[in-house]
Design a protein around this nucleic acid. Structure first.
Length: 228
DNA sequence: GCGACAG
DNA sequence: ATCTTGTCGC
C-alpha cells in the first residue's frame, strides 16, 4: 500500500518546493488511461470565494436529471498562486464530494487535470485522493501549446513538454474554447468524450454549469443548503 | 531579467 | 475568482 498523502492541515506549513513535491507524487499516482468502467452518474464540482470563504458545490446527474446536490464551506487556507490552486480549493471540494449520499461514477471538475506544470491540477488531486475517475475543464490555458479551434466541435491537442496532456475544444458558437484534460483514470481522448457527452447547449458540460449556478446561489443567498 | 500564469 | 450596468446578439 502506498503511503497516504499529507493531511491538508499540514499544507500551509510546507514551502513552495514541498508543495511542488506533493504534486509530483500525486502525478505519479495518477493514471491517464480509460479505466473508469461504465459512467452513468457524473457529478460537477465548482467553487466560489465570497470574502475569506471557500464554497464548494457538487451537482450529481444521471442523463438529464439532477439526482443529488451537496455543498461545503471553509476558510481560505492560502492565497491563489498559479499552479498551486489545488491547495486553496481541495479541502472544501473534497468535503462536498464526500458528503454526497451516493458516489458518482466520475467527476467533471472546474479546474485542470494533466494540463498543469507538474501534470497534477485540482481534478488530478481529487481523483487520486478519492480514487474516482475525474476530468478537468478550464477556460484559460495554464500551460502547454495548442492550435485554437475555430469550428464548433473542433478539438486540437494540447502539448506540454512533449506530452499530449489534453485538448482545446470549441464547445459552443461565439464562445472562447475550453481546455479539457484527464484528471485521473481517464485518457485525454476519454476526457474529451466525456465532456462532449455531457454538453447540452451551454459552453460548459451541464454538471459543471449547474454546480457553477449552485455555488453562486449558495453564496448569494442565506447560505442554506441548496434547494433541488 | 521579464513576462505568463487554472480559479 | 471578485468588484459591476448596460448592452449587443442569438
Amino acid at each position: 500500500m502506498e503511503p497516504s498523502l499529507p493531511d491538508p492541515s499540514t499544507w500551509t506549513h510546507l514551502t513552495k518546493e514541498g508543495l511542488y513535491r506533493l504534486q509530483e507524487e500525486v502525478a505519479e499516482r495518477a493514471t491517464f488511461d480509460d479505466e473508469g468502467g461504465d459512467v452513468e452518474r457524473v457529478a460537477g464540482v465548482d467553487q466560489a470565494f465570497p470574502g475569506d470563504l471557500v464554497l464548494s458545490c457538487v451537482v450529481s446527474m444521471e442523463g438529464e436529471d439532477v439526482v443529488e446536490r451537496s455543498a461545503a464551506e471553509g476558510e481560505t487556507p492560502m492565497p491563489y498562486v498559479p499552479g498551486l490552486l489545488v491547495f486553496r480549493e481541495m479541502p472544501t471540494a473534497m468535503a462536498a464530494v464526500e458528503s454526497l449520499d451516493d458516489e458518482p461514477d466520475a467527476l467533471l471538475v472546474d479546474g485542470s487535470g494533466a494540463i498543469h506544470p507538474r501534470f497534477a491540477g485540482l481534478a488530478t488531486h481529487l481523483g487520486v485522493a478519492l480514487d474516482l475517475p475525474t476530468v478537468g475543464v478550464i477556460k484559460n490555458l495554464l500551460c502547454g501549446e495548442t492550435e485554437e479551434p475555430t469550428e464548433v466541435g473542433e478539438a486540437n491537442p494540447v502539448l506540454y513538454e512533449g506530452r499530449l496532456v489534453g485538448y482545446s475544444f470549441l464547445s459552443k458558437e461565439r464562445c472562447n474554447p475550453v481546455y479539457v484534460s484527464p484528471g485521473h483514470r481517464f485518457s485525454p481522448e476519454g476526457a474529451l468524450d466525456l465532456v462532449r457527452e455531457w454538453l447540452t447547449g451551454h459552453k460548459l458540460p451541464e454538471p459543471i454549469f449547474l454546480a457553477d449556478r449552485c455555488v453562486d446561489e449558495y453564496g448569494a443567498g442565506s447560505r442554506q443548503p441548496p434547494p433541488g
